[in-house]
Design a binder for these strands. Structure first.
Lengths: 239, 239
DNA sequence: ACGTCGTAGATTTTATACAATCTACTTCGC
DNA sequence: GCGAAGTAGATTGTATAAAATCTACGACGT
């Protein structure tokens, strides 16, 4: 065990080196879960994490409580925290929620997007194109979250945006599976580019409609994967 | 200080005496905040709470992290936790979200409500009638949450229900103000009764429409209160 | 007089140590 | 042989104490 990068110092581990160890631990665990380094269903033992990250168990515990509120782990009293796995029904529910909420956000935000926003969106789209080719799906989730988050950033509804961010995070792991197995790669890229183009053109109605279709299509593809997993390989584990 | 009921023993403090002290502390603090015993904006000092509740500061901290995820307090690193106060814009946003999500839940749940469910709903409505007369608005919030929660319980969408429950909790304190000052009392009672009646009659469409109106009306009344607070008395504190 | 620096107190955060709870295995009885 | 109670080990939950950080106040220099 190579004593992973002393998480005790505030050098630049978390987002710009968060102010507390607990925050940095939460960031690191979140990253590992979303990147798939820790598979769904495994138990997170506080003592092991503490000694590996070189910190006490107290900040570990607080990080776990925070991750539970984000839906990434489930904590049972005296029984520990396990990385949560979503059933097909839950995935469907989360995507339904997204399809309900996100168009509403986009409708408010799209007309107020600035030139700088569109520049940033273009940059993300470009980064997308590169990452797509490198077959590294772990970074894909962050990009997806940033793209959607930026699209909604001018809606000026922080609570709603926070909820959507949580939903995106919870579905990231599964969206990746869709991307990896199906033709989702090209579809996602095309959808996102069209989405930004419509927003730039001021076609808010059409953008919202496309967004709803985009989310619903991903939902359908994922549910199909749950029902008949692709033969011989990694597939979404089911409880 | 009367050393509030040793929270260290598992006698029946939390919901049926939760399994950990942290859970019981969270329950107690949640109750105090929702009941208005702790006003918005005040700082929750860990040491004071710990000595008052007769426990260590560790479970206090964990409870605070949990309450932050519910939106009841805001935690700033090294600066402590304060009971969150909502601006008019935030209240409006939360009610908008409710109006968007809750009808969707009701549409799925209403057709599946059983005879037992309706009996429980009638019981809550009856309790409502009594509580309305006793001018004790602190219990009103719990009843409102239970009524709405029960209405949506057959939607079989636990994540969505959890989000709605959080939204209800966050708006409870403000809904109470509406009830106390305006004519909200009779209106809420009538709306809820009509809602249950429509569901019982199988008029799902009408029920959903009424629900959306119900939430939107409350939103309007509250925003009006924010803009011109009733003269000479307790009004929603504004940041 | 005004702004800056530094220090003291309070408060939060983390570490260490102890207690309570759960899990799995063994052993005893039927 | 099979099931139930008991026990040892592991793991989580909590208490106490030390370290880090922030806030407010006062001294100092300009």
């Amino acid at each position: 065990m190579s004593a992973t990068t002393a998480l005790r110092t505030r050098d630049a581990a978390g987002p710009l080196g968060a102010r507390t160890i607990a925050a940095r631990v939460a960031h690191e665990l979140r990253r590992r879960i979303l990147a798939g380094e820790i598979e769904a269903g495994v138990q997170l033992k506080q003592d092991a994490l503490a000694s590996e990250l070189g910190v006490s168990r107290i900040p570990i515990r607080e990080a776990l409580v925070q991750l539970e509120s984000e839906g990434l782990v489930r904590i049972a009293p005296h029984r520990g925290a396990v990385v949560s796995e979503l059933s097909a029904a839950e995935v469907e529910e989360l995507f339904d929620l997204r399809a309900l909420i996100e168009p509403r956000l986009l409708a408010r935000s799209a007309p107020r997007l600035t030139a700088e926003d569109f520049a940033a969106l273009d940059a993300i789209l470009a980064e997308y194109c590169e990452e797509m080719r490198t077959d590294d799906p772990s970074r894909w989730g962050a990009l997806n979250t940033r793209l959607h988050g930026l699209l909604y950033s001018r809606a000026d509804q922080p609570r709603t945006e926070a909820i959507v961010a949580t939903l995106l995070q919870s579905t990231d792991r599964y969206t990746r599976i869709d991307i990896a197995f199906a033709d989702g790669r090209a579809r996602a890229e095309a959808d996102h580019a069209a989405l930004v183009a419509l927003c730039r053109a001021g076609a808010v109605e059409e953008a919202c409609a496309l967004l709803a279709r985009h989310i619903d299509t991903a939902r359908g593809a994922l549910v199909a994967l749950f029902e008949s997993p692709p033969a011989g390989g990694a597939r979404p584990s089911r409880p």
